[in-house]
Design a protein around this nucleic acid. Sequence first.
DNA 1: CACGAGACCTGTTCGC
DNA 2: TGCGAACAGGTCTCGT
Length: 274
Amino acid sequence: MPELPEVETITRLLRQGSDTAPRLVGLVVRDAQVFWERTLETPSIGEFRRRITGQRIRDIRRRGKFILFELTTDTLLIHLRMSGDLLVEAASSPIQPLHRLALYLDYDLRLAFNDPRKFGRVWLVTDAEIVLGSLGPEPLEPDFTAGELHQRLVSHRRQLKPLLLDQSFLAGLGNIYADEALHLAHLHPQTLSDSLSYPQSERLLQSIRTILQEGIRRNGASIDWVYRGGDFQNYFRVYQRTGEPCPECGTPIHRILVGQRGTHYCPICQDGGR
DNA sequence: CACGAGACCTGTTCGC
DNA sequence: TGCGAACAGGTCTCGT
């Protein structure tokens, strides 16, 4: 499901709480259960349960598409991959068939990792850098500059879209927001990265930031049965709008495969000189 | 180094 | 209505 805006939305909800959800910061993990073994990347189930029990949640943050729970001594990292979601529920409520892992917390609360497709992963480590080490820069960090992006772009000769999806190049973009940002930037998804001028790189960074910020403002996108709460899907420019008019010029949106991913773009606005 | 194919998975929607 | 195919917000590994 989730890309940077959805992960950011979930992270904020868990960290700050809401009218309907309690704030998790400050609570202590009292027990843990794993229902699908492969969900837990490291350590073993036994050590996981032993080690996490008794640790307090000091803070909850996001890095790329990872959710980080900073505990007393360790960091718990969760990646939702395609279909994962985190639910806060009463510890006494029944375990759902699609729950893969659960943490039991103070006040009879349970944090459940729900993940139909079983692609999601969880790590408990002393040093989060072991997991996050290869991630590229955060696109919304103010000190990430257009100059830096341009440098990184021209140091590769790759199609723009797969490069934007590469988390070691830039952290947080996924299939939706890459298509949306490329449309806003008027760049063809198959443009070669080393052909971008500095002004084009600048426009790309600005577009990425605009799209991500709008996604966050709308609490992410809710497309199908996975993840509800956001409404950015009502404002898509091109994603899943094959055949519908381009919001800028009216030309029907095209869908092609780029790097095995469905890719939506306007053949006129994003001609890229092709 | 860059890219495509296949793997990991289940649920929903599409097309005949 | 029914049923198989296609498709899905992600990432890894392997072969060319």
